[in-house]
Design a protein around this nucleic acid. Structure first.
Lengths: 98, 98
DNA sequence: CGTCATTGTCAGCGATCAATAACAATGCGA
DNA sequence: TCGCATTGTTATTGATCGCTGACAATGACG
């Protein structure tokens, strides 16, 4: 399922929340936000903060993904769990750096 | 690539932007936001508004997706491009509704 | 129907986003 | 190295987020 708009996120959150038979209040408490915020998120609020939205999706075990392999090493590191051999080698093999 | 944090989004945006050889300023103008906002997004700003973030990803042709098929018809509709036969049938076959 | 749980809406308020502007830092080719 | 483009940082400010609290609407169930 492709995600292009906040409205789609809202419907998805509502669906996954209901699949678990959680109330909006229960989800809100898990996320550390108000119930009002959950209401508005499910309604497709476009101004919700990305950090909170991602936390909600994680709490509901909804994996967000992109089918792209970044060219930038730093981005690949983030994609692969935090291990960047290239960088480690470079960092530890550069001599005479005051 | 799995997306779990705003930081990953930032690195991804930077990577895709550079792949197109756009400046932060150019991307900002396409999105209708300030350059400062792009700077902060790429730095992993967790308070960026979801609507703007999705617009940025769309502008960079980065498809966000989840591998879930919602049970709620409304959510499936959003997922499949806006056609909901079930709903159309129900709506058009309910007689005598004042 | 009556009751209770859940969800939706509104008002008011402190905290903070995103914008603008100015300037510093970095990068990169000539 | 110099000069220019790009990126990063800071301060300020109007607009608005997310919160609390209260109340209405909806839904589920006996």
């Amino acid at each position: 399922m492709l995600i292009k708009t906040p409205k789609e996120i809202g419907l998805l959150v509502r669906d996954r929340r209901k699949a678990r038979r959680w109330t909006q209040d229960a989800l809100a408490q898990r996320l550390g936000v108000s119930r009002l915020w959950v209401v508005q998120l499910e309604q497709g609020k476009s101004t919700a903060q990305i950090g909170l939205v991602l936390r909600a999706l994680n709490e509901l075990d909804v994996p967000m993904q992109v089918d792209i392999t970044p060219k930038d090493p730093a981005a690949r590191v983030a994609a692969s769990g935090g291990i960047d051999l290239d960088n480690i080698i470079r960092e530890t093999s550069t001599p005479y750096r005051a």
